[in-house]
Simulated assay, not measured.
Amino acid sequence: MAQIELVVGDITAQDVDVVVNAANSSLLGGGGVDGAIHRKGGPEILADCRKLRAGHYGRGLKTGQAVATTAGRLPANWVVHTVGPVWSAEEDRSALLADCHRTSLRVAADLGARTVAFPAISTGIYRWPVESAAKIALAAVAETLDGTPGITSVRFVLFDKRAHDVFAEAASLLDR
């Protein structure tokens, strides 16, 4: 069984096979995690994203889907870009958030990755409550890892201690 770990840190500094990017649908960079990955990864990531937009993803990447590019100057080998849903109090979009994690892991496995680092997808400018996102993310990853050979470690790289503590609490409930 693959190991799931939680750390406070910088997703762009992770020495893993795959870093998951909480991208926007354009794939052309943005703010938050997406902007940080594009800035630190350098122009190679943007060049790959532009190629994707010129091909199959001409209209952008749909919410819940994932696609891989080079990691450029990051210590990782690849970046798997996924578009998280925007939080809505009126519409349950939990399945889309879970899909981000499931699809990202499948893309990573198809690349031959063994180690994957995730941010807390949708919890920044998309306003998803961290408590809910943690439960959804951890459950989706645990479920997907059961049927995904090759991946040995998934690391959630969280922005601050509060997010780490929320994910740790959700993980402890998942283990029961």
Rank of each mutant, 00 (worst) to 15 (best):
T152K: 11
H101G: 08
H56S: 13
A170T: 10
G58Y: 07
R102M: 10
E131L: 03
R155G: 03
G60C: 06
Q14I: 05
L28M: 13
S25P: 02
D160E: 01
V130L: 06
E44R: 14
D165A: 01
G35Q: 05
R59C: 06
V116E: 00
S172L: 07
K40W: 08
V7L: 01
S26E: 10
A140M: 06
G150P: 14
A120V: 05
K51Q: 10
A109T: 02
R162N: 08
I37E: 05
V19I: 15
R93I: 07
D110K: 09
P75Y: 09
T148L: 10
I45G: 06
A163P: 00
R162I: 00
E143F: 04
D160T: 04
F118G: 00
T144L: 04
A171F: 03
A89I: 10
F156L: 03
D15C: 03
D48A: 14
T63C: 15
T103M: 12
P149W: 02
L111C: 04
E91M: 15
D34P: 13
Q3S: 13
I125G: 08
G147K: 11
G72A: 07
H38M: 05
S94M: 08
A66P: 08
G72I: 04
G42I: 09
N21P: 13
L138K: 12
I11K: 08
A98T: 11
K62W: 09
G124M: 06
I37P: 10
P149T: 00
P75F: 11
R50L: 14
R176A: 11
V166M: 13
V157H: 06
L105R: 05
G64W: 09
H38Q: 12
G41Q: 07
A134S: 07
G64D: 13
G30N: 03
F118W: 10
A89N: 14
C49V: 06
I4H: 02
A137R: 08
R50I: 12
A109V: 04
V18M: 08
K161D: 06
D160F: 03
V33S: 09
G30F: 03
R73K: 15
A140V: 11
D146Q: 15
A117K: 01
A71W: 02
D165I: 00
R127H: 14
R59N: 15
E169G: 10
F159L: 03
F159I: 00
A113S: 04
V154A: 07
F156Y: 03
G64V: 12
